[in-house]
């Protein structure tokens, strides 16, 4: 028996919005410690990994490990039927070929139930080694989204260059070129606007903007995004999954990490 309840169903909607264009089908691995998902995009250039901690749920029960393979586009459609303030429960019985989604409205007298068919998917899990990265940039998620969108007007790829003075995002295309430079800054009043750069050695790497723009669909989950880079390894773009409660308290319940293979010169 698996049962997981989130008090703010909108979090699950945001997670699905963040991944369902990159991957259409994937398996959730459910264990006593939480739910996780790992999947490559169809062209095998990027990888998305979602982790939800069991203790981030208001109720979490997983009697034995389960793999719930499903069509994420369909899951997204069903989650659209939940109100943003609904409590959402996911239930799966051992050996069943479907899961149940239960939406409880805040008024406490309206309950909706949906079932979604499970699928047997060929799992291709990649092992991601512990890596210490040369460069880590923590910046406002909305700023990163804006930079990726703007530079995609200029070209298909962005070169991220880190030096002592800051981080440069630049693109070149038929019409010309463009760049955005950020230097470290911190504000006590608005920590969500901070740019934090930690660098061991200068570095420059190029990535396809098509994928980065897909990753930024996770922007509504968290005010800050973390980029981790090292030479000759994929870029990691991480968003914390933050649940905002009624009292405006913020609770970190997991994360989404996107991994993107670099473009390399001949």
């Amino acid at each position: 028996m698996f049962e997981a309840k989130l008090d703010r169903g909108i979090v699950l909607k945001k997670i699905l919005d963040a991944i369902n264009q990159l991957v259409n089908e994937a398996s959730w691995e459910c264990t006593s410690s939480g739910m996780s998902l790992q999947a490559m995009d169809t062209s095998h250039v990027s990888l998305v990994a979602v982790n939800l901690n069991g203790d981030g749920f208001s109720k979490f029960r997983c009697d034995r490990n389960m793999v719930l393979g499903m069509n994420l586009v369909n899951l997204s459609k069903i989650l659209k039927c939940a109100g943003n303030d609904d409590k959402v429960t996911i239930k799966a019985a051992d050996g069943d070929d479907k899961i149940k989604l239960i939406f409880e409205a805040p008024n406490e007298y309206e309950v909706s139930q949906y079932e979604i068919k499970l699928m047997n998917l060929d799992a291709e899990y990649l092992g991601i080694p512990e890596t210490s990265y040369n460069v880590t940039v923590k910046m406002p998620a909305a700023k990163f989204q804006r930079i990726c969108r703007d530079l995609n007007q200029i070209g298909d790829a962005v070169t991220i260059s880190c030096t002592k003075s800051g981080v440069d995002f630049s693109a070149t295309g038929d019409l010309g070129n463009g760049s955005v430079s950020l230097s470290q800054n911190s504000s006590f009043d608005k920590p969500e606007d901070n740019v934090t750069i930690s660098m061991q050695e200068p570095l420059s790497q190029t990535f396809a903007l098509k994928y980065l723009n897909q990753f930024t669909k996770a922007t509504p989950l968290c005010s800050q995004v973390t980029l981790s880079l090292s030479p000759d390894v994929p870029l990691v773009v991480e968003y914390k999954i933050i649940e905002e409660n009624e009292e405006d308290s913020k609770n970190e319940i997991g994360h989404i990490r996107y991994y993107l293979a670099p473009k390399i010169d001949d």
Binding site: V45, I128, A157, V233
Partner: peptide, 14 residues
């Protein structure tokens, strides 16, 4: 122009 690499090139199957 630069060539796009694949993610499996960096991370092996688990």
């Amino acid at each position: 122009s630069a060539n796009q690499t694949k993610i499996e090139h960096y991370y092996g199957l688990r």
